[in-house]
Simulated assay, not measured.
Amino acid sequence: MSLYDNVLIKIREMRESLTPVERMVGDYILENTEEIPHLSIKELAQASKTSDASVLRFCKTLGYSGYRNFIVSISAALGSRDDEMKVQYTDIRPGDELSTIIANISLNNRKSIDDTLSVIDREEIAKAVDILRECKRIAFFGVGASGLICMDGEQKFSRINKICHAYRDGHSQLTAATLLEEDDVAIFISNSGATIEILDALEIAKKNKATCIAITKYHKSALAERADIVLSISTPELTIRSGAMGSRIAMLTVIDILFAGVASAEYDSVKKYLTMTHNIVTKKLKY
């Protein structure tokens, strides 16, 4: 089990995409977490008003090979629960002092990163880095706030001389996806995983045999199911007041990880580009 693995966060994030029976198991676990490590699979099935088979399916849906591995993860999550309870997401509230806002936003951003580390698949990251190293070009697809993440990705990978571009509106995304080829990588960014423009472009990219990477919330979604590689984030958007703050910082972190992974693996060949781009900007700032 990963140092950062937290099954309780996984259950929280996956809840809405679980089957009704799986949700019954998940809800019981979240409401009675302390007692779960002491229950057999049959006892948990009885307590959640489901069946042994349903509990086992629930465990496998969350990525565990069996009930024993699941219980080990529950115990580990409980071990760090006291610290977790001290750091809760806080929404924008009327009349907060500026010092409170500074503290809350900082805590929210840190917890977004920590929760993302609990669900992201390290093997998928490794696959993504390998593909990005070998690809001919990179196309970023995102709408609205996700489009801003695309721009960040374009800026970073351009610095190491990767051919890449960010596409942020539906028409340009369709055009770009149509021109993708087998040696290209398309990175689709969507918190919900259900953005229509993104799914339309994804369908075209897959037909053209481009490798499709998804950066999306950890749950079952059309984007996650259809992408070749899925990099999951975890961060609840509390209300319309806080907008896409949490998902933005989590997605930017994933982009940073991918960029650093590629740059580190190819450092001998890309350090000259990093130096050149740094020097030209620094020189410009002197005038």
Rank of each mutant, 00 (worst) to 15 (best):
C150F: 11
T211M: 09
T239P: 11
I229N: 04
S242T: 14
S190T: 02
Q155R: 15
S146V: 09
C150W: 09
I138V: 13
I213G: 03
A263R: 12
A194V: 05
I196P: 00
I255V: 14
G142W: 08
G246Q: 09
L132P: 02
S158A: 15
L148C: 10
T175A: 06
R133T: 11
T235Q: 10
A260C: 13
I257F: 03
T195E: 11
G153C: 14
I233D: 07
S247N: 03
E123W: 01
T178V: 02
G243N: 07
I189Q: 07
K209P: 05
M245N: 02
E197N: 00
D184C: 12
T195P: 05
A128D: 04
I125H: 05
G246W: 10
D121K: 10
S190Y: 03
G261C: 09
F188R: 00
E134P: 00
R168D: 01
D200F: 07
F188A: 09
I213W: 01
G144P: 04
V185M: 08
D228K: 00
S234D: 13
H165L: 11
D169T: 02
K207C: 12
G153V: 11
I255L: 05
L252W: 03
Y267P: 06
Q173Y: 01
G147V: 04
G153I: 09
K127Q: 08
F259R: 06
R226I: 00
A227N: 01
E154V: 00
A260T: 15
A265W: 06
F157I: 02
I125N: 09
L199Q: 10
G243Q: 07
G170R: 04
S146D: 12
V254W: 03
F259K: 10
I204Y: 11
D200Y: 15
E154P: 04
D121C: 08
L223C: 09
